[in-house]
């Protein structure tokens, strides 16, 4: 808020991100409910009846092998998954994994649950996992990605759906959901009380794919050393525990482009942690 050109209150978060997250969460939830209604002979008029598989960009990733080799999609995957995959890639190449930080409803739900942990544990929240173990565990999602691509390619079916907490989140009321995915969803939500976005950090195969774009994305998060107070706020608020205060340019494969570390949100010095293309002076 500005009065006479002076900033009185600093926003404590990127509020527009919360709006976007809510929007996509509600959109997917309503479509998932509508899909169930349609399957039972009902449905909400003028609303998409697509299945969750049809609206998942990761479906496009897992079907690439089958599409390249025999020209067909994995069962339950459709052209729409391919379209969404391409759109998410375009955004990621430009801005990093904004799909993870702004769109993915599972990430959103984890953040909601984490609010409980933040109240309970305050500064200790998101600092429970020892750094050494944490560093190793963060590569686990690449193993998950390799496994998912392998089993999908060899079976031609969406085996990962049985373990996918995102699928469980929006299908727990149907008979389509498998018990392992419900258990993994439960564990993810429970861990979210202690750790910010545990699924994203340690297991999400789609986050693993998009995370690679952090290495070469056009818009980067950059810290201006000349004005930085080295107070470490940017690192403390980072949900992915990236040591922003030790970096000049954030190229960490786990960054989700949430912008919480920037001067627009928590960094107390103007134009010090910025999101830009072309570097800083």
């Amino acid at each position: 808020m500005k009065i006479f050109g002076k900033r009185l209150f600093r926003p404590r978060s990127i509020w527009i991100r919360r709006v976007v997250q809510w929007f996509f969460f509600l959109l997917i939830a309503i479509i998932a409910i509508n899909h169930t209604l349609v399957e039972n002979g009902g449905g909400i008029p003028f609303l998409s009846t697509a299945s969750l598989h049809a609206l998942c960009p990761f479906g496009g990733v897992v079907t690439i092998y089958q599409y390249a080799t025999i020209g067909t999609f994995v069962q339950k995957i459709h052209e729409s998954s391919f379209v969404l995959m391409i759109l998410a890639f375009i955004l990621s190449i430009l801005f990093g994994p904004v799909f993870c930080g702004w769109v993915c409803p599972l990430g959103t739900v984890q953040e909601w649950v984490s609010k409980i942990g933040k109240k309970l544990f305050r500064r200790k929240f998101n600092r429970f996992v020892p750094a050494k173990l944490d560093n190793i565990l963060r590569y686990l999602r690449y193993l998950v990605l390799a496994w998912v691509i392998y089993v999908t390619a060899t079976s031609g079916t969406l085996i990962f759906a049985d373990y996918d907490p995102y699928f469980a989140l929006f299908n727990f009321w149907t008979t389509e959901v498998a018990l392992p995915s419900l258990i993994i969803l439960g564990i993810t939500l429970l861990l979210s009380v202690f750790v910010e976005r545990p699924w994203c950090k340690y297991a999400c195969p789609y986050g693993a794919v998009l995370g690679i774009t952090n290495l070469f994305r056009v818009f980067q998060i950059r810290r201006v050393e000349s004005t930085c107070k080295n107070d470490g706020v940017c690192s403390i608020v980072c949900p992915m525990n990236i040591p922003v205060d030790e970096l000049q340019t954030v190229r960490d494969h786990q960054c989700i482009s949430c912008l919480e570390c920037t001067s627009e949100a928590f960094c107390p010095v103007a134009k010090t942690v910025v999101f830009n293309a072309g570097g800083v002076k």
Binding site: I16, S48, A50, E79, L87, L91, F275
Partner: peptide
């Protein structure tokens, strides 16, 4: 780039992309 333009870009890319692919006949969900 700040958060508001980024939010707008996300909406434009996703919904513009879906609209474009629908027009091209690529948006098939079943």
């Amino acid at each position: 780039l700040t958060s508001k333009p980024l939010a707008a870009i996300i909406f434009v890319v996703f919904f513009g992309g879906i609209a474009f692919s629908t027009g091209m006949g690529w948006w098939v969900t079943e």
